[in-house]
């Protein structure tokens, strides 16, 4: 296995009695996009701060690019770009000025800094707003400027804390596409934290679920789903008109089927009340192996008509919910 870019060993941070991060072990490989996922107050930001040496861990070590972040934060900060959540800029300066300032703090001469800043603004789609004061920027523009700001020092690793918070779906899509592009084309290692599952799911190679200061699961989507269910499982949703108890028992009689239960029909997809009016019932069938064709055949045999058939795959959403349903939500700190 390759040398990890970010390696956390038994990292712990305590604030008085409260443990924000408890014995965290994590290794992130070069060139991957890692999503740190967890509810508010799970310790994501604290972990990130420790990686940058902005906060001292109570115990344990955080190594970034093979450098101990607690002892040599300067060298780490030279290689790592960090975008805080809700990134702020000097509002009475233009976007270009803000970028040039960051570049110069990194020791880049003024002339190169201007060139690089202009290039990056072009890249994140802010070339038109380069001369505008950042106070007039929209949230999405600020976030994109933040990305440019992170990239201007040509980092090896970028750490994004809640990069998609508060931007509209289209903005999120663009931002994520940009991040993925950077990772794929320039071999950047990306660590992003989020509590937005869909987004993380779209671009991350691996995700870590982080709750109450502990990493409770880590891996790609398949691994997580497997860890979650404890075995392979399939689920199919059927939209049927003319549903009756007979049909239900006939489906349940199939040896592979575990359960047959009525599901709430998706209001948007099924057309809400309209669907009910037409007598469409949505049923969720779980089974140990894939029996989708068999189910369809049964429904038709019974004289009912099959309106829709959707094999379900566990998304991160379900995994997330499963994990958080398990714990007492009252324990979560906000």
């Amino acid at each position: 296995m390759e040398q990890a870019v970010i390696e956390l060993k038994r990292l712990t941070k305590q604030y008085g009695e409260f443990t924000a991060v408890a014995g965290l072990n994590l290794a992130i490989r070069p060139g991957e996009i890692f999503g740190l996922l967890g509810p508010n107050g799970a310790g994501k930001t604290t972990t990130i701060l420790m990686m940058l040496g902005l906060t001292e861990p109570t115990s344990g070590t955080a190594e970034v690019c093979g450098i101990d972040a607690t002892r040599n934060p300067m060298q780490v900060k030279r290689r790592v770009g960090y975008m805080p959540d809700d990134v702020g800029f000097y509002e009475d300066r233009s976007g270009l000025d803000n970028l040039v300032y960051t570049a110069r703090l990194n020791g880049i001469p003024a002339k190169d800094a201007r060139e690089r800043a202009a290039e990056l603004l072009e890249r994140v789609g802010l070339a038109d707003a380069a001369g505008k004061k950042t106070g007039a920027y929209s949230r999405g523009m600020r976030q994109r400027l933040g990305l440019a700001d992170v990239l201007i020092k040509r980092p090896e690793v970028i750490i994004l804390d809640e990069p998609t918070l508060g931007i509209d779906p289209e903005g999120v899509r663009e931002l994520l596409a940009l991040i993925r592009d950077l990772s794929r084309n320039e071999g950047l290692t990306v660590l992003l934290s989020s509590h937005h599952l869909h987004q993380v799911q779209q671009i991350c190679d691996r995700v870590g679920l982080f709750v109450g200061g502990k990493l409770i699961a880590c891996g790609d989507l398949d691994t997580l789903s497997r860890e979650l269910d404890g075995g392979p499982s399939h689920a199919v949703e059927l939209d049927v008109t003319g549903w009756n108890a007979e049909l239900a028992s006939s489906l349940a009689a199939l040896p592979e089927v575990n359960s047959v239960e009525a599901a709430d029909s998706d209001a948007l997809v099924g057309g809400g009340a309209g669907a009910k009016g037409r007598g469409i019932v949505t049923v969720r069938v779980t089974s140990t192996s894939d029996v989708t064709p068999l189910l369809a055949a049964r429904v038709i045999e019974q004289g009912a008509s099959l309106v829709g058939l959707r094999p379900l795959r566990y998304g991160l959403d379900d995994i997330y919910h499963r994990y958080f349903e398990g714990g007492d939500s009252g324990e979560r700190v906000h």
Binding site: L54, G81, Y82, M83, P84, V87, G88, F89, N106, G107
Partner: peptide, 14 residues
């Protein structure tokens, strides 16, 4: 309060 402190501090600055 403007969120610029954490940005500046994450640059290689003492």
């Amino acid at each position: 309060n403007k969120g610029t402190l954490s940005r500046v501090m994450s640059q290689p600055v003492y």
